[in-house]
Design a binder for these strands. Structure first.
Lengths: 209, 209
DNA sequence: TGTATCGGATACATGGTTGTATCCTAAGAG
DNA sequence: CTCTTAGGATACAACCATGTATCCGATACA
């Protein structure tokens, strides 16, 4: 009745919201959060600014909504991968780790948007804590899979699990970023990622049972 | 005579250029390259836009000049640290590495601006290659010091030197970024950096002579 | 001390961006 | 089929940023 923004009920609304979010995803990745104008996003989505201001209060709110959705999606994806791990046929440890870590940060993940988010987080305390929370959740999942494998094979690590997880994520992140900067095709990125992660796992694992 | 921008001769010119660059450093770190207006930078430097356009062609040129200068400064700093390593009293390897790597990315290095640069590089191919070149130069220096220490103590590494160097830089970078996101004071950042690098070095070094 | 010129300030024209107030149309309920 | 209303388009006003053309003062050199 006195809602400034209409309640999120209708079907149509959800769709245009989604299209705006998709467009924002693209545009933010291409030119960055600050250089992106509301108009650009609307144009990309096939709307006018009227639609935008009917669905969001500001570009900032849109950005927040976008990265929230993105974080959830990624966490779910990783959780999914962990769930469908081939429990019986775990023959190469690095492969497993790669499957989980690579999914989280490498592969089809455009580093542009993530770099953008991190940069923004470094300036805005609110964003910072959100970002950290999300990172921690991700790390927890990676730690989970590491512990699982280590247990299953009676291995031991040269570093605490948490530390190992962070290393893996860092390397994955850096590999992806560098490969993108070098303009390598996606396939090649995978190669590199595999190679580096495999070597790293080799170093981290102390003894095989 | 037909120079669009006057030749860089005069003393006064150099000073205002420097002041503008300093101001740009601050502003870019605070709000980012895109959100920063030429006016903001000039205001910070105590000039009007007239001065700016008399010294630079555009905000982009200024940004380029800034990061070039910054990269050179950092490379020099690292080179200096390497040069003045205590050649006789090298008792802890991790300390050495930390001194070099930490200087390059950690310590008093605001990650904001670096994150910004990386983000921009991910969008602009020209910037990308510049960024990569600089990173490589940095890596080379780190590799140098690693090789030096490894040789001096007849150690062996579990990874190729290049790989080890990248790991160290990655960890240093991530530690710094995270600590900043968490709002930790500089001193504490150092603590964390030391701890993580020391552990990592412990893992990387295979055998002590 | 006078004068030429360099360097920065001022003023202005322009275009792009934002946010809001209003209008119009198409979905959906009865 | 009609009527209501929600959702998006249009139109508008204010602002801000950019870039340029011009002006003025200080500095350097004779």
């Amino acid at each position: 009745m006195a809602d400034v923004l209409p309640r999120s009920g209708t079907r149509r609304r959800e769709q245009t919201r989604a299209r705006l979010l998709d467009a924002a995803h693209e545009v933010f990745a291409e030119v960055g959060m600050d250089a992106a104008s509301v108009e650009m996003i609307c144009e990309r989505a096939g709307f006018t600014r009227g639609a935008f201001y009917s669905n969001f209060e500001s570009k900032n709110e849109l950005f927040l909504a976008l990265i929230t959705q993105l974080a959830e999606a990624k966490l779910d994806e990783v959780a999914g991968r962990v769930r469908e791990l081939p429990v019986d046929a775990i023959d190469d440890t690095s492969g497993l780790v790669r499957q989980v870590v690579g999914a989280s940060l490498g592969e089809r993940m455009e580093p542009q948007l993530f770099s953008e988010i991190r940069t923004q987080a470094l300036r805005d305390p609110a964003l910072a804590s959100a970002y950290l929370g999300w990172q921690d959740a991700m790390a927890a999942r990676v730690e989970g899979i590491i512990s699982y494998v280590v247990d299953a094979y009676d291995l031991s690590l040269r570093l605490p699990v948490a530390e190992a997880a962070r290393l893996l994520v860092d390397v994955s992140d850096d590999t992806c970023t560098r490969a993108t900067l070098e303009g390598r095709p996606a396939e090649e990125v995978n190669e590199l990622m595999n190679a580096r992660l495999e070597r790293l796992v080799g170093v981290l694992v102390e003894s095989r049972g």
